[in-house]
Nucleic acid binder design. Structure first.
Lengths: 214, 214
DNA sequence: TCATATGTTGAACCATTGTTCATTAAATGA
DNA sequence: TCATTTAATGAACAATGGTTCAACATATGA
């Protein structure tokens, strides 16, 4: 995307950039930021260290670019899914479908992303993490607003806060998808398209069993 | 616990150890493992670097000890809660109560713990992370078995896999608690003891609304 | 009290690694 | 073709920080 109207030189630069980012992705997601050296990135990308420094300011900037660009891609994809759905229920279903695809196709990146968003909240050095968390927050608000309008229309009960519903659905599905994608031998994807959603939409309780409120 | 029958020397050593671990905890949870120097730990603990090396093999071992000991504490607490409950429903309720307490009292450590368990799965350098993940897995199995026996007794529906239920409940509550504890101004704990559990036990759907299965 | 053992200290060492830049190679176009 | 600009290279530099250990302090008990 977006490489029209560029000179050959510029396209060449962009290709290099991609190659370096790809090499970096593989290493970072495998070993973590601090355990990867620039020499390693250079070697895997088949460039000299100096070449990398011609394109990226420094190691931190390389990492930021890598993470941010992919996160923006995911974000765009998921948010546009939520926006273009014809009603609240299909919004949720389409979101989960998109998320499943993103997970299966980008698992090593997802691992990096989760580390950033889950592990480092309120980390004072912030920086890029701030930007990523902002992306995540804007997505959560979108998802919350789907629940909110669903509640207004009488599709969803008024029992739960919209934001809590968003947090609950997103965390629950992230955890389940992680399990299924990371270890499909023992924890296969159960096939059923609506399985994840039904954790919230159907009660776990057997009808006639004790209710939660004493 | 477990400091009976020790000589004065040994008790002294243990006290030092605790002081160093406490200093390390504050720094690691604030800045992350790689951004903390041994000099800093020494300074905060009010010992010389050399003294730390008399007690801990090296930096990695210090970190391992710190994380593992607290994780074992949490694990023990939660698992014993699950074990001693009189039935499945109270097991779940007691587990959530214990978890809420652990979160509010140990938030900085929880952040570290989450980083370990969520971010670093399948990281080849493993080591301690392996042990921690094993603790987490054994807890998950316990929680899954609560659901399993609940299903057998007819308290819970047979729709969901026990392990998926465990993963869903644990991830959902971790995410919600995180939100509430990290930012109580905007996301206060909603007070209701059964709020978290009811995400699974009650349907989000308004009765009469569309069901998920078309 | 004093000789010995035990514990503490932190400056110095050294391995690691992010970054630079003089050198070499390639592209350009006259 | 060849002078000049532009880009690529990787050895060397410098800073960081984990670890060591000789010197110092304290405790022990004869």
């Amino acid at each position: 995307m977006g490489s029209e109207g560029l000179s050959r030189k510029e396209r060449e630069r962009l290709r290099q950039r991609e190659e370096i980012l790809n090499a970096a992705l593989q290493l970072f997601s495998l070993k973590g930021y601090e355990n990867v050296t620039m020499q390693e990135v250079a070697q895997r990308a088949e460039y000299a260290v100096g070449t990398i420094y011609n394109i990226f300011e420094n190691k931190k900037e390389l990492y930021k670019a890598l993470l941010l660009e992919h996160c923006q891609r995911f974000h765009e994809r998921v948010v546009s899914t939520l926006d273009s759905a014809k009603d609240e229920m299909t919004a949720l279903k389409d979101y989960l479908k998109a998320k499943l695809e993103i997970f299966t196709q980008n698992i090593s990146l997802i691992r990096l992303y989760i580390k950033e968003t889950q592990g480092a909240r309120f980390n004072p050095k912030a920086g890029m993490e701030e930007e990523i968390r902002e992306l995540y927050n804007s997505f959560l608000s979108k998802l919350a607003s789907v629940f909110e309008s669903g509640i207004k229309k009488g599709i969803f009960r008024n029992r739960f806060r919209p934001r809590d519903l968003a947090v609950a659905l997103d965390s629950l599905t992230t955890a389940l998808l992680f399990e299924w994608v990371e270890d499909p031998e023992n924890n296969p994807y159960p096939g059923d398209q609506d399985y994840m959603l039904s954790f919230l939409l159907e009660s776990v309780l057997e009808r006639g069993g004790n209710n939660v409120s004493h």
